[in-house]
Design a protein around this nucleic acid. Structure first.
Lengths: 211, 211
DNA sequence: TCTGATTTAAGGGTAAACCCTAAAATTTTA
DNA sequence: TAAAATTTTAGGGTTTACCCTTAAATCAGA
């Protein structure tokens, strides 16, 4: 018997997962959380064997949460859930201790396989992602995903304020730094994310849940 | 017995809906589509009694698709699916012939109720949305949703190019109009969507699937 | 058909974004 | 602790965005 918890802000996804896994004999869903905070509080009560963890959450991101959780709950297995076939995401969250990575278009059988695999402390990745990582390791460019560099803490802060329509001056005041510094971060963000202007920054930030 | 089809680009949502409704006796899911085009082609083969239609789709939007479908399939009942509690959306899609509107955080029982309600040609809306529409009709501002005016065809074109990082000059060249006209559209968009700059335009465009 | 909405466009501004180079100070990581 | 990464700041410049008013031409609905 494997106990399972889910963290995902999409109620429909949680419902879907619950119903899918309810039919599986030796998997028991014991909790569902919608936010980072929910998860931190909820796991204190009872800790599941495996946590299905969405990367994009309203009050934070699953990548950082994964790291935090692994520090407290060494035996907890975490499977990241995401819509994005993104090598940088996968690398990062596995570096942060995740035991698996699933795309949200996964099937029930793959889901069950993933849960049982990580339960035995073996890393689970879908075939497509394994292939992508292999290509990446061999230095081959892969068409389906585009590279997203890791943003620094400060860059994320600036980016999230840009998305909130702050001007550079307003950001400077908010963060107690000069406009010039903010502009430097803007330029770095534009370079790192390979976009041309604010429009691109906001689009990428929202699409990839970088903030 | 009610036959059902689903149009949603989120595989997980489709899976969730399928599994949820598989358990229901007199509802049979006969098809699932991921795009506008899929749906148009698929319905030619066999038409369900009810279509669950996501508003945000990769190759178009459910609002326009709803109108198109209703012209061809008069008896088809359509329930719009969306994450947004947005009065303008609801009004628009119901104006376009939709028979119901569900939020994606719906429950199984509400889902079944909605399907059976629209089957009998009665409009279905969740209680919260009914209340919102009532408040709106009474001229009361409602806190949970913010008003999104309908954008004109040209405004949508400009907005979608802004999201694609085009400058005003590039948009002007693309659409064979002057920069001044593009700037006029930009200003109108900023006013209509109650934002301050491009960042806001892109955010709202993506969040509300306006493009 | 007339009327309102949409699309087009201009002049003349100010504010903001974006780019370059360069470098010191600080923090993190190996 | 040394090396690497991050954060900070500056000068000086170009381009783009944004705002104001005003208005003609075109399109679509009652």
């Amino acid at each position: 018997m494997t106990t399972l918890a889910i963290t995902d802000d999409h109620a429909m996804v949680v419902e879907g997962l619950k119903t899918m896994l309810n039919q599986v004999e030796d998997i028991q869903i014991i909790d569902a959380f919608y936010t980072v905070n929910d998860t931190l509080l909820g796991l204190k009560n009872k800790t599941p064997d495996v946590l299905l963890l969405d990367i994009n959450l309203p009050d934070g991101n699953g990548i950082d949460l994964c790291k935090t959780l692994k520090e407290t709950y060494k035996d907890l297995k975490i499977i990241a859930l995401s819509n994005f076939e993104d090598i940088a995401f996968i690398k990062q969250i596995i570096k942060n201790g995740a035991n698996g990575y699933l795309l949200k278009n996964t099937t029930k059988s793959e889901l069950v396989e993933a849960i049982q695999t990580v339960k035995n402390d073996v890393l689970f990745l879908p075939e497509t992602l394994k292939r992508m990582l292999l290509n990446d390791a061999l230095g081959k460019p892969n068409n389906s995903s585009y590279f997203v560099p890791n943003l620094t803490r400060r860059e994320k802060e600036v980016l999230s304020l840009i998305v909130k329509e702050y001007t550079s001056e307003e950001i400077a005041n908010e963060l107690f730094i000069t406009i010039k510094t903010v502009e430097a971060h803007r330029s770095n963000l534009i370079q790192k994310l390979s976009v041309k202007n604010v429009a691109g920054l906001v689009r990428v930030a929202l699409e990839k849940g970088l903030i």
